[in-house]
Simulated scan of single mutants.
Amino acid sequence: MQTRLVAYEALNAVQKQQVGAIEVHPQQLPFCGDMYCALNTLLVNPSPGVKGLALLADEVPVAFLLLKRAPCQPHWADEHSATLHALQVDRHQQGRGFGKACLQALPAAARLAWPQITALELSVDSDNVVAMGLYLQQGWVDRGEAYKGRVGYERRLALLF
């Protein structure tokens, strides 16, 4: 199966409709949100500081994520980085390596969007053992800082280029 991470605006009409139908498991919603919220962030008030990316598997969207830069990135982010948000792998496609494929393709896609960035950053719930393991396995580094998030304590991770 061929995968590639592409900008939302490069998708055709059918693929955009398929992105809108991506659903995560209900217990994941507090952590990553849903597609309605993610697409609302991307499309309602377009900003050069927000990019949507879809992972295509044989040209069918199976995952989606947002990247943010100033002025849209969180206050805790370094000004030379982009931040990862709303990573969602369709619940019917989970466990097939698509989250890993997103993370592996992400540095090149982020640098294509913003060549000046030197890192990616994210925030993840410290109790989300699966996500923490995936990020750390892909080379992200725990910055050693935790803070009270919406659900529980969150860890900040970075991937330096």
Rank of each mutant, 00 (worst) to 15 (best):
R69F: 03
A63Q: 02
S81E: 05
V60Y: 10
A110E: 07
E9S: 12
K16M: 14
E145K: 08
L87G: 01
G97I: 08
Q27T: 15
A109V: 08
C72M: 10
A13T: 12
A38K: 02
Y8F: 12
L11E: 02
V50D: 06
E9N: 08
A70G: 09
A158H: 09
R150V: 08
Q28E: 14
Q73Y: 06
V19N: 06
P74E: 00
W76G: 04
G52P: 04
A13S: 10
H80G: 12
A10G: 05
K68Q: 14
R69H: 13
L103T: 04
Y36K: 10
H92V: 10
V141L: 15
L84C: 01
M1N: 09
F98I: 07
Q18C: 07
L56M: 11
P107L: 09
G139P: 12
F161G: 08
A82R: 03
P46R: 04
A146C: 09
A109M: 08
A146T: 14
V14W: 08
R155C: 15
A131E: 04
A109C: 09
V141D: 09
Q93L: 07
L160I: 14
P61T: 07
L11Q: 03
E79R: 09
I117N: 06
T83N: 05
L66W: 01
R69E: 11
Q93S: 11
